[in-house]
């Protein structure tokens, strides 16, 4: 009787492990089978066209560029912010009410759904004061409102979204630096500031790089924030050609798409109904994410070996 119960439990555990593996692989295989036909050199190097004709739909150049822009700007905003917060929490913060509030606040922030951050962005960046980040709505009488959708705005939303994760990873990296390093530096007469910038941060470099990569992975995969803060336009809406040096500021102040919104758009849930293109873009997205994960693993494992 007990043996039956034990073997049932064990089979259940093995079955769930098996399902995890099978699910992972069947998703990847399914994407590849459905989408490999869409992928070509042309698919990767042309801009998309909003059209019903599949032949003229173009490729994913500008969505890839959009993903790239948002990821880079988002991380550039989030990283210094996160490092400063991590340093404050691990080096300066005293044990008091403010610090424990800070910690709870960051905890709660990490539990806020991305869609809520997205509508917060809508509320904030449609205020006329922030019009310089997107553009002002013109032509409607009495509507003193900013458009609230642009690469700048979207990147800021992304920065808020990844902030708590990057803080946590950076904090762990900074805390992992042995106290003896700090003491050695302080004993040599270095100030606390130079101890942090010259000794602590360089020693925590590997952890900080991991934090950056994890943060990038989250930004690349997010759809909700892009949907509300960059909008549903599939092409770059700034002056063409969008990639031209002279237009870069306008491009960033206007909207476009990323790989995730491109997939959403072209799936049956969106308007495009060109599922094959959505699958093609999914393959590209998955490959980017697997590459990022591999790099993060590689850095992590090299660190582990070195510390042994």
């Amino acid at each position: 009787m007990n043996k039956i119960r034990d073997s049932l439990q064990q089979s259940f555990a093995w079955l769930s492990a098996l399902i995890t593996i099978v699910a992972c692989f069947s998703i990847i295989v399914f994407l590849f089978l459905k989408g490999y036909k869409a992928i070509s050199f042309e698919f990767l190097t042309t801009n998309p066209n909003p059209t019903f004709q599949a032949q003229e739909a173009g490729g994913i150049l500008s969505p890839m560029a959009g993903t790239f822009l948002i990821t880079i700007i988002g991380i550039l905003i989030a990283l210094p912010w996160a490092i400063a917060t991590a340093i404050y929490l691990s080096e300066y913060a005293k044990k008091n009410l403010i610090t424990s509030y800070l910690k709870i606040a960051i905890d709660v922030l990490s539990g806020v759904p991305t869609i809520v951050i997205a509508i917060f962005g809508v509320a904030l960046f449609t205020m006329p004061a922030f019009g310089f980040l997107s553009s002002m709505i013109e032509g409607i009488e009495g509507a003193n409102k900013a458009f609230g959708k642009s690469f700048f705005v979207c990147s800021m939303g992304m920065a808020v979204m990844v902030l708590p994760y990057v803080i946590k990873t950076c904090e762990e990296a900074v805390k992992a630096v042995p106290v003896s390093y700090r003491e050695a530096s302080l004993a040599l007469g270095a100030s606390k500031r130079s101890t942090i910038t010259k000794v602590v941060l360089p020693s925590a470099k590997r952890g900080i790089i991991t934090a950056v990569i994890l943060g990038m992975g989250r930004i690349i995969g997010d759809t909700a924030i892009v949907w509300l803060l960059l909008g549903g336009s599939i092409r770059m809406t700034g002056p063409q050609p969008w990639w031209h040096f002279a237009n870069w500021l306008d491009t960033l102040k206007n909207t476009g798409s990323t790989l995730t919104t491109y997939i959403f758009f072209n799936s049956p849930a969106g308007e495009g109904n060109k599922a094959e293109l959505a699958f093609g873009a999914s393959i590209v997205l998955i490959i980017i994410i697997i590459l990022l994960n591999t790099v993060a693993d590689f850095i992590g494992s090299r660190g582990a070996v070195k510390e042994e």
């Binding site: 599922a275 998955i286 994960n293």
Partner: peptide, 22 residues
């Protein structure tokens, strides 16, 4: 098993949506 789990965690939600839909 560990890397399958990590990959499942990293797949963006829009791809889950797409697979679910199709």
């Amino acid at each position: 098993l560990e890397s399958s789990t990590r990959l499942l965690a990293a797949i963006p939600s829009v791809i889950y949506g797409l697979v679910g839909l199709m």
